[in-house]
């Protein structure tokens, strides 16, 4: 065994080749293309040319700052709410799930068996002005006739939270499940009551899960456009909707590309700061 590993072998490199090729062709090349597009000028009919036009960035930033910051705020709210909702749930499954752990995990994942759009459309039905919920409550005069949820930020946030909850719950579950329960015995043995044991032992050990879950929730939530499209209105337009419109409706590729990279830059910086706050030691250990 040892002798074999000493000799150079092309096999490991060959094994990574398909993946590397795939990423190069379908990820890195388009990234560079889009990046150069974001510095182009012109219009769809006459064509775009690369002129190093960085004003694309300042233009979209001033024009779409509301949507950009709304998206970041929505992403933040969604991350916080899903964290608060899934932590107790993941904790309970990891600690008390017993033989049924996998069943509970399956229940969390069950919505994924229907497509994203269908799930969001179902929420549209649920939140409709005369839906089974609002309609009934209005029928009993518990809500004014004009009351609506659809097209408000409540609706968009509800949809986002619902759709991204499993992305938070699963990494949290993995982190909590991995923790040796005898650590809690040790903490109580060393004069911690249950609250202190949670704060000093469980919480720090679950931070890698919190981190992973936050990334998996925050990043796609910020860029999402389906929830805002189906459940939102004019006041809930997110940056994803704007980007989509730039590309599909306005056919303004440079501005769409600039907006995309602006969003990406903001997310990368945000994630970097977040990792610093949580402490990288916990994330690698």
């Amino acid at each position: 065994m040892a002798r074999r590993s000493r000799r150079w072998s092309p096999v490991p490199y060959l094994l990574t080749l398909p993946g590397a090729l795939w990423l190069t062709v379908f990820f890195i090349v388009p990234m560079f293309t889009m990046f150069s597009v974001s510095f182009q000028e012109g219009n769809f009919e006459e064509g775009f040319v690369f002129t190093g036009y960085w004003q694309n960035y300042t233009n979209v930033l001033t024009r779409y700052d509301t949507q950009l910051f709304r998206s970041l705020a929505y992403g933040l709210i969604v991350t916080l709410v899903t964290l608060c909702l899934s932590y107790p749930m993941a904790y309970w499954i990891a600690r008390r799930g017993g033989k049924n752990k996998n069943l509970f995990l399956l229940l969390i994942l069950l919505p994924f068996f229907t497509p994203f759009i269908i799930r969001t459309l179902a929420w549209k039905q649920l939140l409709g002005d005369n839906s089974i919920i609002l309609g009934t409550l209005k029928g009993w005069n518990l809500l004014p006739e004009s009351y609506q949820v659809l097209a408000t930020s409540t609706a968009v946030l509800s949809g986002l939270i619902y759709n991204f909850l499993p992305f938070m719950a699963l990494p949290l579950y993995v982190a909590l499940e991995r923790m040796d329960p005898s650590l809690l015995d040790a903490a109580t043995d060393l004069y911690s009551n249950r609250r202190q044991a949670f704060l000093r032992v469980t919480l720090p050990l679950s931070l890698p899960g919190v981190f992973a879950g936050s990334l998996l929730t925050f990043i796609p939530a910020v860029g999402d456009f389906i929830n805002a499209d189906l459940l939102g209105g004019v006041n809930t337009v997110m940056i994803g909707n704007v980007i989509q419109r730039e590309f599909v409706t306005n056919l303004d590729y440079p501005e769409g590309a600039a907006l995309s990279f602006l969003l990406m830059g903001m997310i990368v910086i945000g994630v970097f700061l977040y990792a610093r706050v949580l402490g990288t030691e916990e994330l690698t250990g």
Binding site: S182, A186, T188, D189, Y191, V201
Partner: peptide
């Protein structure tokens, strides 16, 4: 009396040291 109020300490079978 709960464990955290007892004047005993334990060396656990798997050590249960805090990894963080």
């Amino acid at each position: 009396l709960p464990a955290y109020k007892r004047n005993v300490n334990t060396v656990f079978q798997s050590y249960a040291l805090f990894p963080h």
